[in-house]
């Protein structure tokens, strides 16, 4: 049933300017005309506006902004990403579901997306505020044929994808705070959480979680993060369609990922640095035992943070707490 529905949407989508007759649909989908009519009713429940004219046929007039498997797949021209989309209205976290389906064997490119997360995960189980319909809360499952130590590059890759989509589709000027937070006007708009299951020399799967603040207003932002977080709407005074943004993220992700698999990290590095926040500026670095100031030089060939300390020594960092704003918190 589901695939018939998708084919139907595809047929209608490809004929947006014209009517397509019930007979043609019935022939192509190999179901009766009353079956077609039933599917149309279901699509209307999903929020599509479908015009049915006798002797002419059917035509899609409008699609819903509501996210669903159907609306997301309609018009999504990708080769492998989003062929399976799991959409839920409200779940604890898309990461949890993505891990579950990954362990059950879900395929490369599976996407889990929710209208609302009740227990959105930030890193180290920090809470990520993800209100209903206010943003994009999704997880992408990939099974890359690279070595586990290269996998952190996927988080930088995903950051460039988000920055690219925001720059192309909206009017904001995004920057990436190493390794993968998206900032607009120095405030966080998106976060990425990447989790991997791997053996020593082989990756089983990687789940890339994306949280993008879209239509929150100032009052939606919890007070404690209000001065550090923002949304597209707050930055542009405009309401944004989630569906379009999701599709752009998925398409751009697929292209970027394929190119990375073919050409390696150099292209990602250049792109990343073009969005890099505070390159050439002074930052405070903290590890478990040490704390020091250094100049942020850019990223290394493998994505690590390159810094130059006051004594002139350069250092490559893979993991550290960085005080980007020099206000005592990261």
């Amino acid at each position: 049933m589901e695939s018939t529905r998708n084919k139907l949407i595809e047929l209608l989508a490809n004929n947006q300017d014209d009517y397509i007759s019930g007979q043609v649909l019935s022939d192509k989908l190999k179901i009766s005309r009353s079956g077609i009519w039933k599917h149309m009713k279901e699509l209307e429940k999903d929020g599509y506006t479908i015009e049915g004219k006798s002797k002419k046929g059917y035509r899609i007039l409008d699609y819903p902004d509501k996210l669903s498997e159907n609306t997301l797949q309609w018009g999504l021209n990708t080769k492998w990403i989003g062929k399976t989309i799991i959409h839920k209205q409200s779940i604890p976290s898309t990461q949890i579901i993505a891990h579950q389906v990954a362990l059950e064997g879900a395929s490369h490119g599976t996407v889990v997306i929710a209208d609302e997360q009740t227990m959105g995960k930030g890193r180290m189980n920090r809470h990520w505020h993800s209100g209903k319909g206010k943003g994009i809360w999704l997880s992408i499952l990939v099974r890359p044929d690279i070595l586990p130590y290269q996998a952190p590059q996927l988080t930088l890759l995903t950051a460039t994808v988000l920055a690219d989509v925001l720059r192309t589709c909206t009017t904001v000027a995004p920057l990436i705070k190493w390794p993968n937070d998206i900032l607009i006007n120095n405030k966080k708009t998106a976060g990425i959480l990447t989790e991997m299951q791997a053996e020593q020399d082989r990756i089983q799967y990687v789940v890339i979680g994306i949280g993008l603040n879209v239509n929150q207003t100032k009052s939606d932002m919890p007070e404690d993060i209000g001065h550090r977080a923002t949304s597209l709407q707050m930055e542009t005074n405009k309401h944004w369609q989630l569906r379009e943004l999701v599709q752009n993220i998925l398409t751009t992700f697929e292209n970027t990922y394929d190119s990375y698999m073919e050409n390696g990290f150099p292209e990602i590095k250049d792109k990343w640095e073009s969005f890099g926040f505070k390159i050439g500026e002074s930052i405070s670095i903290k590890t478990m035992r040490d704390k020091w100031d250094a100049t942020f030089l850019g990223i290394a060939a493998d994505g690590a943070l390159l810094t130059k300390a006051t004594d002139g020594t350069t250092k490559k960092l893979y993991s550290a707490e960085i005080d980007w704003f020099k206000e005592g918190e990261n």
Binding site: R123, Q197, S319
Partner: peptide, 13 residues
Amino acid sequence: VEAMKLFNEIEAE
């Protein structure tokens, strides 16, 4: 083990 915000759950194997 975390590097560049990628969290790798290490299993005993």
